[in-house]
Amino acid sequence: MQIDPSLVREFAPTGRLRAALNMGNPVLAHSRTAVERPAGVTIDLTRRFAQMLGVEADLIQFETAARSGAAVAAGAADIGFMAIDPKRAEAIHFTTPYVQIEGCYLVREASALQRNDEVDRAGTRVVVGEGSAYELFLSRHLQHASVVKVATSEAVVDAFLADSGIEVAAGVRQQLEADARRVGGVRLLPGRFMVIEQAMAMPRGRSGEAQALLESFIAEQRRSGFVREALQLHGIEGATTLL
């Protein structure tokens, strides 16, 4: 596929494609099978897109979605991979989503909470990773429970266990399941409180041609089965690939 040189310069103004990676998401930027690091579906997509543009890729790693998104919004990264959110969309352009993951609640074994709809009650404290898709969502939607923010998604369960006054931990299902196996004495509430739609992203203000190119790229990776196969290759389960 021949890409107009002006579009290549728009996507890679430094001559290299700078990709912001959210290393705090175990579905997107981690692999259970690959020896090299970083590895995961977003790394595979970055390299594939860079190859299409005919440039090399720089993988810029961030601990959180908030920092990754800030890099894209500021133009310090050329593309990124993160959950679609209206607040982020003020400074970031998103493609249509390519995968869905679930936001879930975790409680102590002895907790009286049994269902997701029981969480939003006065006095209930819910700990989340600051700037994550589920923190932004819960901060908008919880009307009675209060949100407690910690620096990273990986720190959520440890902060939850360290403070007996926090009744609920919220996060990506895969991260919470891994933490539950690690610490014991906790359980996930059945189901989910939200579906998190993950998309490719780039700074707002780019041309309509650039938006169309990124959209067509991710659409082809879904349609061809590349996203599904990459998740399988890296041993990632529980994510729904969109066609």
Rank of each mutant, 00 (worst) to 15 (best):
A159E: 15
V27T: 14
R121Q: 15
A133M: 01
G208P: 06
F81E: 00
R125P: 10
G80E: 04
D78G: 10
F62V: 04
V119S: 04
A71Y: 04
S139C: 03
A112S: 14
A178P: 05
F137G: 00
A39T: 09
P5I: 02
G40D: 01
A169S: 00
V8K: 05
L28C: 08
A212I: 06
R182I: 00
A239T: 04
P5D: 01
H141C: 06
V156L: 04
R173N: 07
R67E: 15
L138K: 07
A133P: 05
L214N: 05
E90K: 14
V128Q: 04
R140A: 15
P203R: 13
D158V: 08
L136W: 06
A212W: 11
Y134P: 05
F94K: 02
E109V: 11
G238L: 08
G75M: 02
G235P: 07
E10T: 06
V126K: 06
F49V: 10
M202V: 02
T33H: 02
A83K: 00
R125I: 10
V72M: 09
G54P: 05
Q61F: 11
A20P: 07
A169Q: 04
T241N: 02
G15T: 13
V55I: 08
A170F: 00
G225M: 12
E36G: 07
